[in-house]
Design a protein around this nucleic acid. Structure first.
Lengths: 232, 232
DNA sequence: ACCCGAATTTAGGCGAAACTAAAAATTTGT
DNA sequence: ACAAATTTTTAGTTTCGCCTAAATTCGGGT
């Protein structure tokens, strides 16, 4: 694609380029980890680019009032930037639901495709897709889908690794949704909504013994740190 | 997105840029009009760009073996270029069907959105979408949808303006699918598949008197030249 | 055959978003 | 507190696809 053509055609109203949208999304995701400004190196790593490129882009985004940015102090989304980011995340997650529910994709196959679809511009398309899918509240990985006004479901989930022996909950999502991890869960027959009891925590390696489907399973500390549980 | 990033990520296999895809599509459509090479000016007009830009792009496409191009002699799609173009057209038309059939869009609203969706890269997505839509043969404007091997339905349609008095057929598509024309047809209640009888041709202004839904209607020469009929 | 006008290509530039290398600012460790 | 290490920014290039202006080439008419 020619990015210039793209910009010329789509920009007249108010527009972000594809690259800008991806940065906004990345900043959004990084913000919840790093309390104050997202730093250049972290963003560069997430975007698989060089810090110097990030600096360039942050200047551009700051000029467009999409982020608050001061030299050497990292970036934060502005209100306008946050709205844009949430819109893209909404589209991404809706498309993931579409791919899994309607086109029979597996939950580990949808990310890259949704990453392309999320940039399609049409408010009406997003709204109609939402309706067609029956206003889903969660994507296939358990992540909340913002509504048309950008409101998320409250994230009332907790990592499996943070639960105590004797606790009970249902599997409510993954933190890291890499294909490998998702396939591992498939193999373990761990699917969304299943009830999980914490039987025992091993302090030595942080592994956890759980009961699921009436069976006992051992979950490594690493895996337990990637599994969200909703406490019942 | 950054176009370079985009290309770096997607290109390793074999990849065309968005701009290249749009050129290939445009050349494909122009080829059926101009028997020999598509000329630079026509392409420039279709792409809403300048002839000099077209020359640049044709060189690039020629280098990638997507078109056969010799200076001052216009361009033709190579086999590889045609395959690529047909794939994009297939995606475009499938998405149009999706938008109309599943998301309740009107037939005059889908073009711009499909124009974006057609560039999403995933063979599996296209295949699953096709299945989900039940392997449609025509898009909402009556244009044939190539199958996965790139085969089109034979175009056994003829313009209304080319029929003779007494002929009978069914409305099978539009040549110009501008929103205005489509809305005009909506107003006239002329929808795909409807039976049409040619009652009278006015040689003075090429307007045509037809019978449709048991009623008599007058179609201007201009409109008649944009309506495809399938002879029964 | 030649000239004129139209079509096309060349040459030189620009903006986006990346890159490398080098400079500057900040943070850290002692 | 201050030098060293790290982070971030600046400066200068590159590629893509566009642009304008200027040069070619083609093709039709006399």
């Amino acid at each position: 694609m020619n990015i210039n053509l793209y910009v010329r055609i789509l920009n007249p109203i108010f527009m972000t380029t594809l690259s800008e949208e991806n940065y906004l999304k990345a900043i959004f995701h990084l913000e919840r980890k790093s309390k104050d400004g997202v730093n250049t190196n972290a963003l560069a790593e997430k975007m698989e680019t060089k810090p110097s490129s990030v600096t360039d882009m942050l200047k551009k985004l700051a000029e467009k009032k999409l982020v608050d940015y001061k030299k050497y102090q990292g970036a934060k989304l502005s209100k306008k930037g946050r709205i844009t980011a949430v819109e893209i995340i909404r589209k991404h997650r809706l498309w993931e639901v579409f791919l899994v529910e309607k086109l029979d994709f597996a939950w580990d196959e949808v990310h890259d495709i949704a990453e392309q679809l999320e940039h399609v511009r049409s408010r009406k398309l997003t709204a109609e897709l939402d309706r067609f899918l029956n206003y889903p509240k969660r994507d296939p990985h358990g992540d909340p889908i913002p509504d048309a006004d950008g409101n998320f479901d409250l994230n009332n989930r907790i990592l499996l690794s943070e639960l105590e022996e004797g606790d009970t909950g249902t599997f409510a999502g993954v933190k890291d949704s890499s294909s490998e991890f998702l396939k591992y869960l498939d193999k373990q027959n761990i699917t969304l909504e299943k009830e999980i009891h914490i039987l025992e925590k091993e302090s030595f390696d942080h592994s956890i013994k759980i009961k699921i489907d009436g069976k006992t399973k051992h979950i490594s500390g690493l895996a337990a740190n990637n599994l969200y549980i909703k406490i019942s």
